[in-house]
Every structure is written in structure tokens, then in C-alpha cells.
Amino acid sequence: MIRISRYGPLVGLIAGMAVLTFGSASFAVRPDEMLSDPALEARAEAISRDIRCVVCQGESIEDSDADIAHELRVIVREQLKAGATDDQVQEYLVARYGDFVLLKPPFKAKTAFIWTGPFLLLLGGGIGICLYFRRVARAEVTPLNVAEQARLEGFLKVDDDYPNPDRDEPAP
């Protein structure tokens, strides 16, 4: 009789999750699309990784199984084969689908905040913290008056027969 470990389902689950996480490193590129020239193919893949799939939107065309992503990959490769530069291929796609098609938006007036926003926030926060600590450091220290001094000494003195005015203890 085969004994299935009671951890069997757990092991299966972990294995399944591992496959989903690491196994699906999607190779959407079909073998028949690939160029025979490895240098050109490497360029095509580099370009495709930065081009957004226009129907799935969250994926690059390199990762997408969508039919239109396939067609765009083929177009990228055809253009490279015809001697286009990387920039020309990108321009071809941007002319048709707009900056949207680039996974990294270009730096323009409209996108300036996207690129500089995090740094501006960091800078603002940094300035805020600096100002705060400068004020803390500058705060004037007034010396204790006689009564306060006496009370402080009471705290500091560990002596059983000295009544602590802040502790609710029966007087000795």
C-alpha cells in the first residue's frame, strides 16, 4: 500500500507555486519568428522588451502571447533585417501607437512629474526633517528652578527613607 505523506498536498502546492512563479518565465516568442543572425535577434529582443503590448497593456510584446504582439515582434524583426536602427524601429511603433507603446515613457513636459516626482518628494521630506532637527537643536534650555532641582534630586536619590513625592507609597 502506498502511503501518501500527510504533507503531500502541501508539497504539491509549493511545487505548483514554484512552477507558476519560475516556470512561466514567458517565452512568448515563437521559434519561427526568431532571426538566424544572433546579434540581430538579440537587438530585436532588447527592443521588444521595452515595447508595451497594446492589448494586454501590462506586458511587453516580448512576453505577450497576444496575436498582435506576435505581429509587432515580426515587424520589429523585419525592420531590423531591412537595416533599420533601434531608434527607427521604436519611432515606427510610436508613430502608430504613441508614447503609450513604450514601457519607459520618454521625458517630456507631460511626463516630467512621473520621472522627477519621487526625487522631489524625497527632497521635500529631507528638507522637512532637516528643518525639524535644526529647530530641536536650537530650542533654548532654561535652567531648573530650586523646586524642580529638589524634585530631580529626589528622583535620583535611591534612598528608602527618603519619601518619593511622585510615588504613592506609605510614608515610613
Binding site: V54, D67, I68, E71, L72, I75, A95, R96, Y97
Partner: peptide
Amino acid sequence: ENGRIGITSFGITG
């Protein structure tokens, strides 16, 4: 049939 007119002349997504 291969979708090239749609992509090249019109930039269609589907």
C-alpha cells in the same frame, strides 16, 4: 489577412 494594413496605416489594437 496578416493584419499589416491595420497596424501600419491605422495602428489598430484589435
